[in-house]
Every structure is written in C-alpha cells, then in structure tokens.
Computed example of a mutant assay.
Amino acid sequence: MKLGTNIILFLFSISLFAQKSTEGIINDADTNEPIPYVNIGIVKKDKGTVSTEEGKFEFEIPSGFMNDTIKLSSIGYQPKSMVVKDFLAILKANPIITLLPEITELNEVVVTNKKLKEKVVGNKSKSKKMKAQFSYAVAGNEVGIKVKIKDSPTFIDKFHVNIVSNTSEKVKFRINFYNIKDGLPNEKIFKENIIFSINVKEGDFTLDLEKYGIVVEEDFYTTIELLENQKKEEEVFFSAGLLGNTTAYRYTSQGEWVKLSAVGIGFNYTVKY
C-alpha cells in the first residue's frame, strides 16, 4: 500500500534474492475441482499470491527461502503447510496441490428483541490530498483498520470508503474480518468469501453486507484484499487521514502484518447494536 499526495509515506520491501518461479493448480481433494482465491505464501515473509478463479497460481520464491514454511489456506478447507523445498519438489512431480474440505459450523444466528441503534464506525476520511493504494500489483496485498465496537452483539450492515480515483473497475477484491492478537489481525472470524469489484470512479463506494449476517462480539480488524494482479494502468486510490483507527497491512498472502498508527485508511462501516 502507498500513502501520500506526491510523496510516498511508506513502501513494502522488495527481496533482492535470486528468484525461483513456481506455478501450479489447487484442487478440492474430494471433487478434484479447482479452488478459487486460495492464499499461498511463505509464512511471515513478503512472498506469496492468491490462486485465480480457476485455481491456478504463479509466483517467484527467493532461493534463500528454501527452508522456510509455505502455507496454503482457504475458507472452507483445512490449511496445508510444508517446507518450501518440499513444496517445490511436489510441484515438480505433479503441478496439482489438493486441499481437504473442512467441516465448519454454520455462522451463529443471533436473534434479539431489543431496538437496535445504528452507527457508523471506523475512519470517515474523504480527503483527496492524502490517499492510499495497493502497491506493486501483488495478489494477496491486504490493508485494513481496527474497529472498536460499543456493544455486543454488533451487526455489520455496510462497508463504505471514499474513492479518490479508480481505473480498476473490473479488478476483484475480498473483504475479510479478523479477531485480534497482540494488536494485529489474527484469524478470520467470518467463514464466507465476500468478493466484489469497485465500480465507482470517484466518490463514495458502499458495499451492502446485511445479507451475510456478519455478527461480531468484540473489537476486530476488517481488511480489503487484492485478488488479482492489477495492470500498471489500473489503480484505485482510497481516501486516508492522519490518526483515526489503527491501520494494518501486509504485502501478500501469509506475510507478516505491520501496524501503522499515524495514518488511518478511510474504511468505515454502518453497524447496528
């Protein structure tokens, strides 16, 4: 993610190691059907990607990471981890990697008879001078904010952000919700993929989430994840502002989260509690 007007306030680091290109397909172990949008990456390193809608993936792995751990994870499937050199050996023998379906409990249905209050929480910036964008067009690039709730349960109705400019109207994104550990995003708390595109060139964008029945009972992180590599000419800039709710980002899938307290990306939510 980049922030700033004409000045980039921070950038992700780029590895200078020699690279080994790797590619493959991720399938469901039971049906042999491709699994779309799987997060694949070297744990706590800035190397990874997201599988395409057809389950295909391709990215480069620095030669210095051969003894690190690579992890594959997707909502609805058991995660798979292994040493990078073993992962490459498996792919060399067979380019298809399989994940086992995970039996998960349905999201709890919360029923209440109290009259709910409505509130907008998060960062409400509509600045055109301070803005943020995804960097380097890497699938899995993710950025979001910490949201504090006033009461439990809290129902998430809508996501809002002000778009400074947008030429990536066909690019797909995923919205994620995480619980918090050590002040950073930890595990996903909503077990359903919410995929969308941003069809607003400039101005307010709203994503209706009411039909998903998202309920939180404590403070959480919410992020937007880039699912497709953007072309250089395709960019989306979000409004941002100083201070506000804490922003966290990671360069790509399974990478290490970084917290940025001084700048808040302009994500906010309509909630009921």
Rank of each mutant, 00 (worst) to 15 (best):
K259F: 00
P101W: 02
V110K: 12
V171M: 01
K47W: 04
M130V: 14
S135F: 11
N186H: 15
V271R: 15
G241C: 05
F237A: 06
S81T: 09
V147H: 07
K114Y: 08
T31R: 08
N107W: 06
W257K: 03
N162M: 12
E33M: 10
N27V: 14
L207W: 03
V147Q: 02
G244W: 10
K126W: 06
Q133T: 13
L209K: 01
K272I: 06
G183S: 02
E234Y: 02
F159R: 02
I25W: 09
Y249M: 03
E234Q: 12
N268I: 01
S74M: 08
F10P: 06
L207D: 09
W257H: 01
G255P: 00
K131L: 06
T69C: 00
M66T: 12
K20Y: 07
L207I: 05
L242T: 04
Y221K: 02
N268G: 05
L209H: 09
V263P: 01
N107M: 11
E202Y: 05
I265K: 07
E256C: 00
G4L: 04
F57K: 10
V171I: 15
G4K: 04
R174S: 13
P62T: 05
L207P: 02
K170F: 07
N193Y: 06
N94P: 03
S63F: 07
P34Y: 11
A139E: 14
V236P: 03
V121G: 06
L243Q: 08
K131F: 07
P95H: 06
E102Q: 14
M66P: 04
K181Y: 08
K158H: 09
N166F: 00
F190E: 03
K188C: 11
T270Y: 03
F205S: 08
T98D: 07
M66W: 00
K211H: 02
E142C: 04
S73W: 06
A132G: 14
V216G: 07
E228S: 06
N39I: 04
S63N: 14
F17A: 10
N229R: 14
P185D: 10
N186T: 08
K191T: 12
L243R: 11
T52R: 07
I42M: 02
P153W: 04
V271L: 12
N176F: 04
A139N: 10
F196T: 05
E217C: 04
P62H: 05
L91K: 09
V138S: 00
M1L: 09
V138A: 00
F17H: 10
A132E: 12
P79N: 13
E108P: 00
L184F: 08
S15W: 00
N176G: 04
S261P: 11
V215T: 15
L184S: 03
E225F: 00
Q230D: 04
D28N: 15
I103L: 04
V43T: 08
I90P: 01
K115D: 11
F59W: 09
V50K: 02
N193H: 11
K131Y: 10
A18D: 14
F155Y: 15
T252M: 00
S125I: 03
F220K: 09
K259V: 09
E202V: 11
N268E: 06
I198N: 12
G241S: 15
K150P: 01
I163N: 03
K114F: 08
V216I: 10
V216W: 09
K80V: 11
L227E: 09
T112K: 13
T112I: 13
F238T: 12
